[in-house]
Simulated scan of single mutants.
Amino acid sequence: MQIEDLTIILPTRNERNNIRAFLASLPEDAQLIVVDASDDETPQLVRDIRPRNTTLIQQPCNVVAARQIGAEAANTPWLLFTDADVIFSLTYFSDLARLDASDPRLGAIYGAKKACDRFIAYHRWFTRAQRFFAGLGIPAATGSNLLISRTAFCDVGGFDLRLVCNEDSEIAWRIKRRGYRTMFAPGLVVYARDHRRLERGVMRKVVHSALRCFLLYFNLLPSRWRGRDWGYWSDAPPAQAPSRLR
């Protein structure tokens, strides 16, 4: 997969402490769409640091709606969803170029998320869990490192806009159930730089994610609960749903 085949989609909200490092990890010729809901200088930093090959959309919305807005604005065959609190590994895009994405039934590729300072053990175990569930045919995708073909994205109708978290895993399951192939590529690595949620308690995050994903996967999560984050995004702005893909 070549760099011209994909658009990087980045939701941001008050990421002034992270955005410089994130942008520095991107190839200059990569197309980037930033959907920003900040009230700090994040959007100005994006304009100043990366004026070329960057589209900035300022829209007050939550992360799920931001991912959807970015996907609707892109026109490449592949969409790379990520977050501003990570950086791409030095070999990420060269490794991606060696992946064969010619299969029209390949709907999603998801990589690993690691850490280079703290919580290294947590991320190591998370990668092992991704590998385990991939062996069972259950994609365990993270929105920090998720590629979705535009064809598959449109086919499943995009993200579930009722959700405020776990939208990454949920869309990967729907893509798989629609008959597309999903691929875990552990060599495609992003590195976490911001550990705010883990600092609030590793077990809290593990239990939160595991319980919600279990309920979502087996369709046991009531509709009225899909819009509640159980404290995951306690400071997120209210969602403003974008239009669906045409």
Rank of each mutant, 00 (worst) to 15 (best):
I175Y: 06
A239L: 05
D95H: 12
L146Q: 07
N18L: 11
Q240L: 10
C213Y: 09
S234C: 12
P238I: 04
R246W: 12
D155V: 01
K114H: 10
K176L: 15
A74T: 06
A84R: 04
A129N: 10
L211M: 15
S94N: 15
V206W: 07
A37M: 07
M203D: 14
N166D: 12
F119I: 00
P60S: 14
L23C: 12
G179H: 01
T54K: 05
G231Q: 07
W173F: 05
S144I: 05
A129R: 04
I3S: 02
D117W: 15
N62W: 09
V207R: 03
V63E: 07
S144A: 14
W173K: 06
I49S: 01
Q58M: 13
P242D: 10
L146M: 11
S243G: 12
G157W: 08
L106I: 11
A210N: 04
R128N: 02
K114S: 09
H208K: 10
F88P: 04
M1G: 08
A21E: 10
A210G: 06
V156S: 09
V63G: 05
I138F: 09
S144N: 08
S38H: 01
L211T: 13
A101S: 12
M203K: 11
P186Q: 06
A97G: 13
L163Y: 03
L147I: 12
K205S: 00
T76Q: 03
T12G: 13
L80M: 01
G187K: 08
L163T: 06
G111C: 01
S234V: 14
I9T: 02
F93W: 13
R177M: 08
A129T: 02
I9F: 09
R244C: 09
G107V: 00
H123K: 09
L188K: 02
T127N: 07
